[in-house]
Structure formats: structure tokens, C-alpha cells
Design a protein around this nucleic acid. Structure first.
Lengths: 297, 297
DNA sequence: CGCTACTATCTTGTTTATAGATAACCTGAC
DNA sequence: GTCAGGTTATCTATAAACAAGATAGTAGCG
């Protein structure tokens, strides 16, 4: 049973004529006869009344109903890839908590305005988890800290973040090793790339193993920092956006520790649905506006 | 885009290997490659990651979802016609009010027991309307009074009915012409074949145009007869079944007027779905039990 | 570095699809 | 009844597509 044959069957049922059906599907009448006959032989049932007016038999009518379901699914699938201008379908994005909170909203807003027919799904998590999701095909693209080494993926430097030390009291210089040792550090759960920077920072201050508490959400973490529970390390933009809600203070870190880039990573462009391709384009435009020097690989 | 290709795509996504997909669908690996490649060319998107583990790209995953919808619709459609033993789908039956009330229940019960997966739909109406429904393909088969002359239909004598005169008082002989003239006659709406018999009866008694009231339901009609509103003509079996509910009395009519056969009429057997073929068989069995001499044409 | 398992490509023979020409058919009108 | 108009079925030659096997190329693993 071929979709072509079913389309002809539906056309015959619609038009009430083999010739008209042929014309509608840009073929000739003899082919319509052949296709219908083949369907009938395959199913062992007469599908079309030929004597007198041409019209579907009750068996034909029943098949037409299924044919319409199949054909509409087919047409919808084709429009996923060949939709003119307007993409549709689904876009699954993975991103870090901080990226989702600070960077994504304006981009998603612009994308949704351009492609209103795409369902957007966001999953948040630390970098290591996101990479896993991407490799397993559970998301279509991710925003992660650091370029993905894996060769067969497309990376685009999306955002440059500057990490700052966040504490509950004003700071003018790095806290002493003693202070760092006795304080706790607050970080996202295992796999968060910012957490590695905390460890780098502690090492640079000659402190080897501070206590690290794990948090799942940004709000909880900042709340605890404000309450004097300890320090954390976050992108400056993220802290600035929340500063009015919490009594927190920041201290710039040395560039080697502070500078960290967020990359947009997705499989090779050849595998992109129009929905994803359009998102990458939206992102590239947004990045160019904010930061003219961009790097793709 | 062919169903065959989609089935291969699903198999590749399932098994994670072109070779295994080929084996599952009884073909060779090179054909799988060709089909997938053709799909990819047609849609302009890579559907399967080949490097490393073979697995669908996000575009491929999206297509697989639609492919599964199309294939399940296809398989369901095929099972409509090629279902082993158990028919499925829908069976639309048209029948007269009296047939539906008296004759159909045991047959439908037997049929439903044999084919529990078939949805049964009953439409009731007078013979003329039922024939119209059948000719328009709005029902799959009908039970009507009298054989359908139309050559391209299959007829089977299903039930023999004996019409009786029904009134509110005991009768031992035909009411006088005078009584008939002053009484009303109650019948189903235009197109009912029993109604023609009423007119025949009146004509045979030398009465040309009695008043005839039209009713839509059997219960209403019998209730009005019992209330002394007038006479009606119905199959004996139907009246017997309702006699305990109404105070009504019957009188046998001359055979030429009384005997009327109910026929099962459907399009040619070549156009039958398994659901309809199985129903015809159930009916034939039931008819043979009740009345060994049956006539098919 | 070679082994293993896999996919891509090429080739061959066969099958199937297409379009056109023609025959057979039904229907309605005269 | 017969004829005209429109419709479907059949046939045929050409072109396209397909299936299977053999072979070449490639990635991953020890």
C-alpha cells in the first residue's frame, strides 16, 4: 500500500471520477485505474463502485478515513522540514540555571515572535548533565560553559561571563586564607562548571578543600549567601540582576578565573530541523548585537 | 516519501543499526542505506547519526514520531480487511422500526458475541428512506420490506412477516366499510411499506381514502390504537411482543395482503468489509434456523 | 597496528511506474 | 433503438526504481 495510491483513492472519492482525480494529482487516468485496482487486489475488496456513478463502496469509505489520517500525518511531517518561512514542531533547549535566568529570556522572546508555531521546551542543569542530554539526543541544543571538545558538534560562543565572588558583606580585597577556610562555599550540584572555578579560586589562595554546599536553584543559593552562610561564585550579570532582592556584595576575581564563556552547542547543522536552524540564526543575530567579535567552529 | 522507507527509518531508530533493521524487515543492508538516504535527500536534513553509534538526529527523532502515527494508521487500516478471524471497524445497519424492535436484537447479540471489535450503528426509518441511505452509501446494509429491484445489489430474504389488523376492541371479522370509513388509520411516516398495505386493505374493502395519521415510533402508535384512536396494520410478531403492555386486539388479514417479506439488502459481496461479510453470515445462520427454505439472489 | 563490525557504493537483473492510444462501457436524449 | 458524450479498462513501449550481492571505505577497540 503506497501513500500515492491512497492519495489517488481520496481524490477519486472526492471528485467522483477517475479522470478528475488524475488531473488533480497531475497524472493520467490509466494510472489512477491501476493504483486503485492494485489497492483492491491487495485488500481483497472492491473499493470503488464503477457502475453508474463512481463512488466509494463502504469498504472504500472506511479506507478513505484511514487514508486521510495517514496523509495528514504525512503532510504535517513534510511541513516540519519544508515549511515555507514558518518553522513548526518542537525545540528542546538545555541550558544552565544562570543562562536560563539571565541570557535566554530576550532570545526566546525574539525567537517566539519569529516562529510562533514552534513548541519550546527548556531543561536546566549543570554543564555535565546538559552535555549528556545532548549526546543522548534528549535535547536539540544546549548552552554550556566551555567549548565542547567532541568533534562532530557545532559550537558557537554565545555569551562571555565575568565571575565574581559573592558574599554577605562588602569586600575590597580577597578574603584571607583563614577566612576562606572557615567559610562555606555554595555551588550548584555536581557537574556545574562554575563549581570548578570555585575550586580553582581556592587553590590559587592556597586553600585546598573548603566546605562546599550544593544547591539546586539560584534563588536559594543567593538567599543563603545573603544570610551569611558563605561565599559563592557567579556571573556578574546574574548577581546584578538579583542584587536588589538580596543584601549581597561582590568582588572581582582575577581574569584567569573570572572569564568564562558560554557556548551554544548543537549537532552538525546538516541535522538541524528548520526550527533549530532558525533558533541558531536568532541567537547569532543577538550575539552580534551584543558582542561583534564572535567565534564559530 | 514511502511507507516502506519510514518503516525502515523506525527500525533503524529502534535497533541502532542498518543491518539489524534490514534483517527485521527481511531485506538487505544496502537497501536500508538507500531508503534512508533518499528520505534525507527529500527532506534536506540528515536523519541518522552515522559516526559512532547509529542513532537518529533530532530531525530524525521528530520524523520517527510522525512515521509511527502513519504506520499505526496503516496497520489498523490493513487489519480492517485482513484481520485474521476477528473483524473490526464499523458496521452501519439500516432497518425498519418493526424489524429493529423484534427481529434484530437476537441477531445483533449473536453478532456482537462473534465480533466484539466491530462498532455497530443502527439507523431506523421507513423502507424508502433506508433504500435512499443505502444508495448514498450512508449505511452498509439495510433490512427493508420487499426485494430491491436494483440489479447491482445483493438481496437475501431474511424474515417473513404476517400483517394483522390492530384495533382497541376484540374483532372476529373485518370491520364494516362504514366502520373503516369513520375510523382513522395510524401508520409510520411516508415511505413505510406497511402503509401501502393499509391502502391495499382499504381498497379491497371498497374504501378509497381513510384518514391516515403518521407516527414516528412504534410505542406511540400502539398507545394511540389502544386508546381507541383507530386501526393500524403491523406484523403479528411485533404486536404479540407488545400486547401485554397495551390493551390491543388483532385480526388476521387475507394472505395477499398479510404476507410480506423483509429482505436484507447490501451492495455486491465483493465490496463487503469483513465486518459486513461476517454479519451476513450470522444472519444467514439465524435465518436457516428459523426458516429452512431461504432465497438468495 | 590490525581486527572487527559497520555503512556506503557500485553493478546487475528484475520489477514497477508512467503516459498515451485504444477499446469497452454506461447514461441520457432524441 | 440508436447515437453521442463522457467515463473506465486494457494494452504497450519507454523510463525509472528497486532488490540483492559483492566490494570498498570507515570508525572503534584492544
Amino acid at each position: 500500500m503506497q501513500l500515492k495510491s491512497l492519495r489517488l483513492l481520496v481524490a477519486v472519492a472526492d471528485t467522483g471520477s477517475f479522470g478528475a482525480a488524475a488531473k488533480r494529482l497531475h497524472t493520467v487516468q490509466s494510472n489512477v485505474t491501476t493504483h486503485i485496482k492494485k489497492l483492491e487486489e491487495e485488500l481483497g475488496v472492491q473499493l470503488i463502485h464503477r457502475a453508474g456513478r463512481v463512488r466509494p463502496t463502504s469498504a472504500g469509505l472506511a479506507l478513505v478515513e484511514y487514508a486521510e489520517r495517514m496523509l495528514s500525518a504525512h503532510d504535517e511531517a513534510v511541513s516540519l522540514f519544508k515549511g515555507q518561512e514558518k518553522a513548526c514542531g518542537r525545540l528542546r533547549i538545555g541550558a544552565m540555571e544562570t543562562t536560563t535566568a539571565l541570557r535566554l529570556p530576550p532570545i526566546l522572546a525574539a525567537y517566539h515572535a519569529a516562529q510562533p508555531d514552534v513548541d519550546i521546551q527548556i531543561k536546566t542543569g549543570p554543564t555535565a548533565e546538559l552535555v549528556e542530554l545532548l549526546l543522548n539526543g534528549q535535547v536539540d541544543c544546549v548552552f554550556v560553559a566551555g567549548r565542547l571538545e567532541h568533534g562532530r558538534y557545532h559550537s558557537l560562543k554565545a555569551f562571555s561571563e565575568q565571575l565574581v565572588l559573592v558574599g554577605s558583606t562588602p569586600m575590597t580585597k580577597m578574603p584571607s586564607s583563614q577566612a576562606l577556610l572557615t567559610s562555606a562555599f555554595l555551588a550548584f550540584r555536581q557537574g556545574c562548571s562554575y563549581r570548578q572555578r570555585i575550586e580553582l579560586l581556592l587553590a590559587s589562595q592556597g586553600v585546598n578543600a573548603g566546605r562546599i554546599f550544593e544547591f539546586g536553584s539560584l534563588d536559594a543559593m543567593l538567599g543563603c549567601v545573603a544570610a551569611g552562610m558563605g561565599y559563592t561564585v557567579l556571573p556578574r550579570g546574574t548577581v546584578d540582576a538579583h542584587q536588589h532582592r538580596f543584601g549581597i556584595h561582590t568582588l572581582a576575581l582575577p581574569a584567569s578565573i573570572a572569564n568564562i564563556d558560554t557556548y551554544f552547542v548543537a549537532p552538525e547543522p546538516e541535522t538541524w530541523t528548520p526550527a533549530l536552524a532558525s533558533f541558531a540564526e536568532t541567537l547569532r543575530d543577538a550575539v552580534v548585537v551584543n558582542e561583534p567579535q564572535l567565534t564559530a567552529s
